[in-house]
Amino acid sequence: MVERLLGSMTLGLSAKRLAALFILLFVVACTSREVVVEGAFPTPLIDPVPVSVGILFTQEFREHELIDDATGRGEVSWRVSTGSAQVDFWSTLFPAFFQNVVFINSYEDLETYDVDAVLIPEVSEVQYAIPLYTSVKVYEIWMRYQLSLVEPEQIMDADNKTINLENMQAFAEWPLTAYGKTPTAFMQSDVDAVNLAAVMALRDAGANFITSFARVPGVMDWIENPEVAQ
């Protein structure tokens, strides 16, 4: 298409190349949207749970992104990177929620710090909906997490001096859902609206985590006796 369009113009070779570049950039810009989720997250107002917890953000969690390629005419490809915002958000929430928090980055951290348990959050699914697809005038984001609480020894591979999550036996495992929305009337662009919906979904995830944590099977027993994980 670009070639045919350029053929109809009377241009020099370098001018044609430049025009082709501009047209391709225009086409790509019109058919894909990229959002790196950014936001400011408040520190929760809570009375901390009296336990010492190590937080392990996996590589997949830190780099999480939703990729949705356009499949039909008129559709737009989306790439929504939530990893950095996930780490920012949960790094603000966990230290306020638990009395002592250590961020685990290596096997040596697990050896050095004496924690009651290690909490591992994972993003299992992210979905989005925009007014173009739903005819409802809101941008929406759904997130589903899988959270695991394990004893530190469960993920320590002493032979290789590494962290190994493959055969871990969590003493508490639970799913966590979150939802965020932004009405079309509030936003100037799709990208801003999806970003705000994602920020709202993260805030909702935090609210859900805080209000449901004590109801997770196995958690209350652990809080009452953190030295002995169930």
Partner: peptide, 26 residues
Amino acid sequence: SLYPWFEPRTAPLSVENVGRLMILPS
């Protein structure tokens, strides 16, 4: 400043529910 107690999921829908929130010292 009161996160997460006034989010869409948690905001009190009646004044009685505010009383329940006040049980939390913070």
